[in-house]
């Protein structure tokens, strides 16, 4: 469970959100929506503990940083780096510290995650050779191996074709079925209505819980 208590967020000194209160239940599947610049990414980063609060508090009820996985939009991952797909995924496995050897299970988990996201047989493929859609699948595979209780997705389906979107949505549903809490920033209202039981709409510096997305989309 995550509880927001009168949260205020600033970006470069300017208030982007204020007076956000409410809860996100454990194991819930929530879409975070709102126009560009409404503070969706900032709120997501604040939930992950990566953006300071300028007011109020966010109570994470025992979630440690290791329990939270953030799939950032426009990931800073350097796509020209000479590294194979499986290594990128394996590096994200929990309990892979700076020094301990990456074990056989962790490599197997990385291979499994790659094939779950439709990247079968791409273990040794260099990251440079991936298309934009395949790259997004790779980021999903990396999020899978994190094995996190709270999963934060920032516009996870941009630059992804319809078939890939269906596959990645099934991964999101699987996370939900496993009892993980998932919060996703989305723009596609049709997808939100069909797949996301809960919504948090950000607009005009405030938040609205489970608003009627049909009206908002119009």
């Amino acid at each position: 469970m995550i509880t927001f208590d009168d949260v205020e967020l600033r970006h470069d000194g300017r208030i982007v959100l204020s007076g956000v209160s409410g809860t996100i239940a454990s194991g819930s599947l929530t879409a975070l929506t709102g126009p560009n610049g409404s503070g969706k990414t900032t709120l997501l980063r604040a939930i992950a503990g990566l953006h300071p609060l300028s007011g109020g508090r966010i109570v994470r009820h025992g979630l440690e940083p290791a329990d939270i996985a953030l799939l950032a939009q426009g990931s800073q991952l350097d796509r020209s780096f000479p590294i194979a797909c499986r290594d990128v995924v394996a590096l994200a496995a929990p309990r892979v510290g700076p020094f301990r050897q990456i074990g056989r299970d962790q490599l197997a988990a990385a291979t499994a995650a790659l094939s779950r996201t439709g990247l079968d047989g791409m273990d040794r493929r260099p990251v440079q050779a991936l298309s934009a859609g395949q790259f997004q699948r790779l980021l999903f595979a990396r999020t899978i191996v994190r094995d996190a209780r709270l999963i934060l997705l920032d516009e996870p389906f941009t630059a992804v074709d319809a078939a890939s979107t269906q596959l990645l949505l099934s991964v999101v549903h699987e996370w939900h079925a496993q009892g993980r809490t998932v919060i996703a920033v989305l723009h596609d209202m049709d997808m939100v209505r069909r797949h996301f039981p809960h919504t948090l709409l950000l607009a005009g510096q405030t938040a609205q819980w489970d608003a009627d997305t049909g009206i908002q989309a119009a």
Binding site: L50, A72, S75, L77, F81, I83, L91, P98, F99
Partner: peptide, 22 residues
């Protein structure tokens, strides 16, 4: 050799490094 893995991760994806291992 000792700092190889964190160095690779930090060079590969500094944002991810900051969000996870710090």
């Amino acid at each position: 050799a000792l700092i190889w893995r964190p160095l690779v991760l930090e060079s590969l994806d500094p944002g991810f490094m900051a969000a996870t291992a710090g």
